[in-house]
């Protein structure tokens, strides 16, 4: 495609994914800034809740909370180490902080502060990470391709990977109420609303079967659950009966619910897929230790072939 062609308008218009704040499909039902609204609402009921950010309030939907509760919002500047150290201090003072930045800056830049000051003493600090995984086109500086791999090794930390606005809205008060630190992989801006179509409620630590199916089981978290549901609907047209298990809490992992679904009553061999990140980096065997790894699974739990889930393009290909 020539530059001249683009300039003349004769070539197809170039696209950018760099500034995309929402990944909703055209016409899809969405909710604006569900995290900010949920935190503002939770703060009405829980006077311990405070919000902090490191110069990314507007980009993590924290600004909604700041507008609703200006006296409970603390701007820490572009200083992520201070952000999380200070969040620890506020928790030590009896408050329940939600501290937001981008996932990369939490996971990569401030790891030592989250680990030593928050996780090791098991404080109720809630880390809110925007742009998790590949939800930005800004490249490696902003793409948190390893956030889950990094945080899975952290003691006491609960990791929540919500699918949609329903998940986020329901998770926030539960994160505040639970003891110990949490990491929320934030979906920001106009966030799709998907799970209202299902008999679903977010329950911290629990996986939920969104739809049953005899042939295949998809196990997914985060925005990939939305894709898994779409894929299941497509496969249904081809007479493939797919179950979808949504696992919004990915540490600790609800093995019991997943294993129960895998051991379901279908007559044919069943396969399972995993979230995109599972193939990227696995420093510890959990949560995918039993039954281990992505692949096609028979009812008895033995792997019959491997499947290759979508993965980070910078990672070495893995057979799972």
């Amino acid at each position: 495609m020539s530059t001249a062609g683009v300039a003349m308008g004769t070539a197809p218009k170039l696209k950018t994914s760099a500034m995309i704040a929402s990944f909703a499909d055209p016409g899809q039902k969405t909710a604006p800034a569900p995290f900010g609204h949920a935190l503002a609402a939770a703060a009405e009921a829980d006077p311990r809740i405070v919000g902090l950010t490191a110069d990314l309030g507007k980009y993590t939907d924290m600004h909604i909370f700041a507008e609703a509760h200006p006296d409970r919002f603390f701007q820490m500047g572009m200083a992520e180490q201070l952000l999380f150290g200070a969040a620890a201090g506020m928790a030590e003072a009896g408050l329940v902080p939600f501290a937001s930045t981008y996932s990369v800056f939490a996971a990569r830049r401030a790891y030592d502060f989250i680990c030593l000051d928050i996780a090791e003493p098991n404080l109720n600090v809630n880390i809110v990470g925007g742009l998790p995984g590949l939800t930005t086109g800004y490249g490696p500086s902003h793409q948190a391709t390893e956030d889950v791999a990094i945080f899975r090794g952290m003691p006491n930390l609960t990791i929540v990977d919500p699918c949609d606005s329903i998940d986020i809205a329901q998770a926030v008060p539960q994160l505040a109420a639970s003891d110990g630190p949490t990491y929320l992989r934030l979906l920001r801006g106009k966030v799709p609303t998907v799970l209202d179509e299902y008999d679903y409620e977010f329950e911290l630590g629990k996986a939920k079967v969104l739809r049953g199916g005899n042939d295949v089981v998809f196990v997914s978290s985060g925005l990939m659950t939305m894709r898994a549901l779409q894929a299941a609907a497509e496969l249904e047209k081809h007479h493939v009966d797919v179950a979808v298990v949504h696992t919004p809490t990915i540490k600790p992992f609800d093995e019991a619910t997943v294993l129960a679904e895998l051991a379901g009553t279908g007559s044919r061999s069943r396969s399972r897929t995993t979230p995109w990140w599972a193939a990227c980096s696995r420093p510890s065997p959990r949560p995918w230790s039993a039954p281990a790894g992505p692949g096609v699974w028979s009812r008895s739990g033995s792997r019959t072939s491997s499947s290759t889930p979508a993965r980070c393009p910078r990672c070495t290909p893995s057979t799972g």
Binding site: A86, A87, A91
Partner: peptide, 27 residues
Amino acid sequence: MEISGGSLGHGLTVAVGLALGLRYRGN
């Protein structure tokens, strides 16, 4: 022992949050 030190450069960041939090709570 109020904090775990040793990884240096942490104490003052926690102190900032603690001072903010105590002041917010009227302590």
